[in-house]
Design a protein around this nucleic acid. Structure first.
Length: 485
RNA sequence: GGCCCGUUGGUCAAGUGGUUAAGACACCACCCUUUCACGGUGGAAUCGUGGGUUCAAUUCCCGCACGGGUCACCA
């Protein structure tokens, strides 16, 4: 079997939708799984939509994700150029070849006539389709128009009868009647190919064997097949993938705020987690494992796992996967990434970042949550005394006050303020008091942080804050509780 | 509207002509614990609907409903 060649062919919009990224991922995996080539082609035939710097967004996203291409605009290859606008010369020739074969024809219809036609069809409840007015023009008329420089397009001559079947690897054989297929435009008035035409030419001339693309192309695939047939070419294998939805009836769209790779990055998700999650959105592994590195994905990926129905994007699951990756990070790496987030709200220089990170990591799902988690360190927030009351711990305002009063001299008495010493002394106190750990440690944690949830327990917080600050916060707690009781 | 595609717990989903219908996330309970989290154990929760075929249908066929896609000189 010939070498597998797949391609990712985005148009440069400056925005990488995660649905597109997922398509790129599947395309990449499909090629790599079979030791084939993954090709990047930029489809920029729409000049009006050109966005400065958009190609770089594509490069950067793909590279960050590790989806490195074997051939492409910047790395070259034997099938270039890899930017559609640089391949302009060839499309016209191919279109004219089709005209000669009788598989396509010149159309001189004006925009006005087309609009009128569409209006009439719509009014009479007929499906809007080109009426093939120019399909039967005499050669004299055609030559005359051409000679006079009348603007024209080239349209595909769809067979007037019969049906067309194409095969999709996910959906199987799909058959449609030719009578419902429009004589679509192949070459525009400006000489540029339409997407549908350029795609076929490019895929064929680049030797693409498998086409992975969004489900929206399912309906136009018969026309693609007819085009391949008209040229006498072998069509590629088609793999159509369903959309990623925001909910049951809406696709995940730009305005939803988390539709692009960059949006997700901005929200604090890790690249590996995003890639891992989108892999699972529309593809199911054979085993029970759901966590995959890129190389593991290549190993595990197969077409049979691709879903036929749309998948709803679930931020909760993404977050869970992200948490998995955060926890799997070596501590020093976690620290490196977490520090800037910590510094957003915690400016104190005298704290032990290493200790803070070691307790923070298991409680961190998203890096962007960190600023809020550590904001109590610089300044004790105002807090509700209700925090001291915990049914399960059996703590009340009274027991908390009592505990804090007993903790105070113990902390004061520790000369070498280390985690070990603080731990030992407090547990000695707990032993003397004959109570459960929580009765002492729970109020301590509250007094030190003023928060319900904290990175670490009372001992760790005391060390992070330092003896002096810890003492003043305990005193503050005693003061508040005394006043309330 | 025509045509095409789809429909298994709240979400992602595996799977089968006879199964206790996997697993993950979320949820609930309990355990562990220095709170929360992490970890562990357990729980609740699913085959859209109506017909047919069959000894047997979630699985095969048809209709219906619902959802999506598409019908551009956009890609």
């Amino acid at each position: 079997m010939a070498e597998v060649r797949t391609r990712f062919a985005p148009s440069p919009t400056g925005y990488m939708h995660i649905g597109n990224l997922r398509t790129a991922l599947y395309t990449y995996l499909l090629a790599k799984k079979q030791g084939g080539k993954f090709i990047l082609r930029i489809e920029d035939t729409d000049r009006e939509r050109y966005v400065e710097g958009a190609v770089d967004v594509i490069y950067k996203t793909l590279r960050d994700c590790g989806l490195n291409w074997d051939e492409g605009p910047d790395v070259g290859g034997d099938y270039g150029p890899y930017i559609q606008s640089e391949r302009m010369g060839m499309y016209k020739d191919y279109a004219e070849e089709l005209v000669k074969k009788g598989e396509a024809y010149y159309c001189f219809c004006t925009k006005e006539r087309l609009e009128e036609l569409a209006a009439v069809q719509k009014a009479s409840n007929i499906n809007p389709m080109y009426d093939r007015h120019c399909r039967h023009l005499s050669q004299e008329e055609i030559d005359k128009n051409l000679a006079e420089g009348v603007p024209y397009v080239i349209r595909q001559a769809i067979p007037e009868e019969g049906s067309t079947t194409f095969h999709d690897e996910i959906y199987g054989d799909i058959t449609v009647e030719n009578s419902i297929l429009d004589d679509q435009i192949l070459l525009k008035t400006d000489g540029m190919p339409t997407y549908n035409f350029a795609n076929v030419i490019d895929d064929h001339t680049m030797g693409i064997t498998h086409v992975v693309r969004g489900n929206e192309y399912l309906s136009s695939s018969p026309k693609y097949n007819l085009l391949y047939k008209a040229f006498g070419w072998e069509p590629p294998m088609y793999i159509h993938v369903e959309h990623i939805m925001k909910d049951a009836q809406h696709k995940l769209a730009k305005r939803d705020g988390d539709a692009s790779f960059q949006d997700l990055l901005d929200k604090g998700y890790m690249t590996e987690a995003i890639l891992n999650y989108i892999l699972l959105l529309g593809w199911a592994p054979k085993g029970e494992n759901e966590i995959f590195s890129l190389s593991e994905m290549i190993e595990a990926f197969d077409l049979s796992g691709i879903s036929k129905s749309p998948a709803i994007f679930d931020p909760a699951k993404l977050k869970a996967i992200n948490a998995h990756y955060v926890r799997a990070l070596p501590l020093d790496e976690f620290t490196k990434i977490a520090e800037p987030y910590i510094r957003e709200t915690c400016k104190r220089e005298d704290i032990d970042i290493g200790l803070l990170c070691s307790v923070l990591q298991p409680r961190c799902e998203l890096f962007t949550d960190i600023p809020e988690q550590v904001d109590f360190i610089d300044k004790l927030p105002e807090y509700s005394l209700n925090l001291y009351v915990n049914k399960k711990m059996k703590t009340t305002l009274e027991t908390s006050l009592d505990a804090l009063k007993k903790i105070l001299p113990v902390i004061e008495g520790i000369s070498e303020f280390t985690q070990q010493n603080v731990h030992d002394e407090l547990f000695k106190l707990i032993g003397e008091m004959g109570v459960k750990n929580g009765v002492v440690l729970f109020p301590l944690r509250v007094a030190l942080s003023g928060k319900q949830f904290t990175p670490g327990g009372g001992v760790e917080l005391a060390i992070i804050l330092g003896k002096e600050d810890a003492l003043s916060r305990i005193k503050k707690g005693i003061e508040l509780l005394s006043a309330a009781i």
